[in-house]
Write a protein that binds this DNA or RNA. Structure first.
Lengths: 328, 328
DNA sequence: CATCGTTGTTCCAACGTTGTAAAGACTGAG
DNA sequence: CTCAGTCTTTACAACGTTGGAACAACGATG
């Protein structure tokens, strides 16, 4: 692998002049510039990022800490973050926490200024004390706890409210919610949106229709749906806090010969690609994932470059209405 | 951020002694060791990986080059590769190519010994000339072209054959295949498995039943299925070269009121989690993804450590029979 | 022609780490 | 009490890069 020294020797100039050319710096005589460029070409020089970053005090990496890549939402988001990071010449390091406190703590511990310049976090279990981060960070989703860190995400209350309003507007009366969770900020907000939508329609909030889900996997949605169908009076509609729960719920409904959407309307959240092709296709709240990824990366870049203050960026969402919801 | 120097000063020893303690090296007096360890603890020292790797001539990273994280198969695989890489203290850098030649070339160009120690590649369009890699690499899937690089993957011919045999054993006679592709080695092998299974059952190979797919997304599967259903005599079963195609195919069948599995049996390939919860759930060839990830990382580690020769690792697969296939 | 400012180049040091070689401390044998 | 041998620590250099100071060359100015 060619180094600056090799290029310099070949071009007959000093190492620093080559460095200057490489970095587009200052004043270099056209003649020298040409010779250096030829030498660069000839040697196929590529800067050693480790050395450069050691010198510059940067690493060229950002961390993306998320529960699990096998969850479609995070996989899609990761892809978008990688793409957005390229604009700032950042490489992305992905850490999986599997949604556990231990996993999140160990991911955070491995972070540090020597490894990454900044971090994007999607925590699910972290406590206040954990947020002593050694690098600038931005939270995706919600502050589970009140902590001074930048955040990017949608208005979860409004989004959930929109989803449930949609069900209300179709004439549903007994609307269940799947995905309540004791420690997740996001869950609390979506539940609040659900509450508000019911309240404004003067529908009662029925405890037995609010079902918790510990993980947000398909299996959890199926289990929750089964428990709802076991009720004396099952719901006529269900709002799931993510698409995987909804997919699981639809599956469980199918197994009990409950037809979606005729007997049961289903709304999801995240708008996974999977939900467009499920049978029936799934009505879902669609956060603008590209906007989230872009905003998070840009925000961190500003923080690192100019030490900007904390920010709270709200990204848009929409409701994608599909086959899983029809009027009664 | 504390450096070796800080720790050394605090412990009252030289930098090198601290380095020796950190690396578990040679002989250090118990007394000094203790003092150093206390100082390490007190300062919260973490090695600067950039500097260490600069010195060691390693980077501590491997690249994972794949088409797209939003494809569930690759997302799952990426998660497993990250987990496997941790065992060797490797961080994983993910590059997306979006299945284009340009994307793959640019990903490869960005690779280099200064950035990564090794690379795991899932190419779809690369040509022979492109495989002048500057670091040890392993191919997942197939050699699209004949090229001297290690490979990890399943026996695609046998796997496809098993899938189609399953359809044959259920009494299907007109079995279509979706996913033929002019440049993908994997597609050619799965097609060969399809051919062999038909041949051994003395079923004719009908050209119009072999449908190409340019990408392997759900939309391509749906489009291919529509063209099959437009045939004068549509198939009674279809073997899709991945699960996304199968999901799309089932969706298209549903839209035409063709019932799966009664009117049409469907088999997929990859065994995505999505396929367990689709309605109907999808019979699918299940490669052992964890084994693939582990084998790929281990192989690279051996290559880097001891310069081992090329290898060709075959990982196991199984056929997961679900609702999408029943006897005629 | 001395001075000055501008432009262009080089030298040196430093980022934090570790391999090498050499120096220092200690042990036991003669 | 010396010497060899072993154990332990240290100084130094180097990995490839870049910021800053120093230096050189140049034309323009007084």
């Amino acid at each position: 692998m060619a180094t600056l020294k090799d290029v310099a020797r070949l071009a007959g100039v000093s190492v620093k002049t080559v460095s200057n050319v490489v970095n587009g710096y200052s004043f270099v005589k056209p003649d020298n510039r040409r010779r250096v460029e030829e030498a660069l070409e000839a040697t196929g020089y590529r800067p050693n990022l480790g050395a450069r970053n050691l010198r510059r005090g940067r690493t060229g990496f950002i961390a993306l800490v998320l529960p699990e890549l096998s969850i479609p939402y995070f996989a899609e988001l990761a892809g978008l973050v990688i793409a957005a990071a390229q604009d700032h010449e950042w490489n992305v390091l992905i850490e999986q926490t599997f949604g556990t406190l231990a996993g999140e703590r160990s991911a955070l511990a491995s972070l540090g200024p020597h490894l990454v310049d900044a971090a994007i976090l999607s925590p699910e279990a972290l406590q206040v004390d954990d947020f002593q981060l050694p690098v600038p960070a931005v939270l995706l989703g919600e502050h589970a706890v009140d902590v001074p860190i930048s955040r990017v995400g949608i208005d979860n209350v409004a989004a959930a409210q929109a989803a449930v309003r949609h069900l209300v507007s179709l004439g549903h009366q007994r609307i269940a919610a799947i995905g309540a969770h004791p420690h997740r900020g996001t869950a609390a907000l979506r539940l609040e949106g659900y509450r508000r939508a019911l309240a404004e329609a003067s529908l009662p909030l029925v405890d037995e229709l609010v079902v918790p889900a510990l993980n947000y996997h398909r299996a959890d949605g199926a289990a929750a749906m089964r428990s709802l169908l076991d009720l004396r009076t099952p719901p006529d509609a269900v709002f799931c806090f993510n698409d995987l729960l909804a997919i699981g719920a639809m599956r469980a409904a199918g197994e009990r010969f409950v037809r979606v959407p005729q007997d049961l309307a289903v709304v999801g959240f995240d708008n996974n690609e999977e939900s467009v092709y499920s049978s029936p296709s799934l009505t879902s709240v669609a956060p603008d994932k590209a906007a989230i990824a872009q905003a998070a990366v840009d925000l961190l870049h500003r923080r690192v470059e100019s030490g900007d203050a904390l920010e709270n960026v709200e990204t848009p969402f929409s409701l994608q209405v599909r086959e899983s919801t029809v009027a009664r």
